[in-house]
């Protein structure tokens, strides 16, 4: 169980080689081994959405995904969302403008889910956004502004 395995993870377009135990989650691989700490750990049990990343374009909870499962896939984290020149993604811009966060800890997960929510075509109305964004908890209670930001970004992208 504890003998490390060698993995190569492709994250935000870059290859990362790492030796980890097979039981290491994608979330811990990112945070503890690769120091990509933008992805947050809110529960480690699949219940809060803070750890949301894209694996091959689909949103997944990285705390419920083993790092080994993600080998060979394209992983996108919050750090890879803005353009190489630092230009913010329209969802990021909208979050800033609408103050769609306070403490910021749920925010990377919210933004990843929002990007997916728009791409999946579920940002058609406020009610639909609320429903599809409900897998991401925000204890600071930024929900009104998150909905406003997703609406605005959905029109922009």
């Amino acid at each position: 169980m504890t003998d490390p395995i060698s993995l190569n993870l492709k994250i935000n377009g870059q290859s990362h080689a790492l030796d980890v135990e097979p039981r290491v989650t994608l979330l811990d691989a990112l945070r503890e081994h690769l120091h990509l700490t933008g992805t947050k750990k809110g529960c480690d049990q699949g219940q809060c959405g803070a750890c949301t990343v894209f694996v091959d374009g689909r949103r997944v909870l990285s705390c419920l995904t083993l790092a080994a499962q993600a080998e060979g896939a394209e992983i996108t984290t919050i750090e890879g969302l803005a353009g190489a020149d630092g230009a913010l993604h329209p969802v990021q811009e909208a979050f800033l403008e609408h103050d769609a966060f306070q403490c910021g800890y749920c925010t990377p997960g919210q933004i990843m889910s929002a990007v997916a929510c728009i791409k999946e075509g579920h940002a058609g109305s406020e009610a639909e956004i609320r429903e599809y964004m409900s897998g991401n908890l925000c204890r600071c209670g930024a929900y009104n502004s998150i909905v406003a930001a997703v609406r605005q970004a959905a029109e922009a992208v």
């Binding site: 700490t37 919050i78 910021g104």
Partner: peptide, 16 residues
């Protein structure tokens, strides 16, 4: 004024 620490928080750059 928008939150000055906002950019760090929306890009994953805020280090807790």
């Amino acid at each position: 004024l928008s939150r000055l620490d906002g950019r760090l928080k929306i890009t994953g750059g805020a280090t807790y």
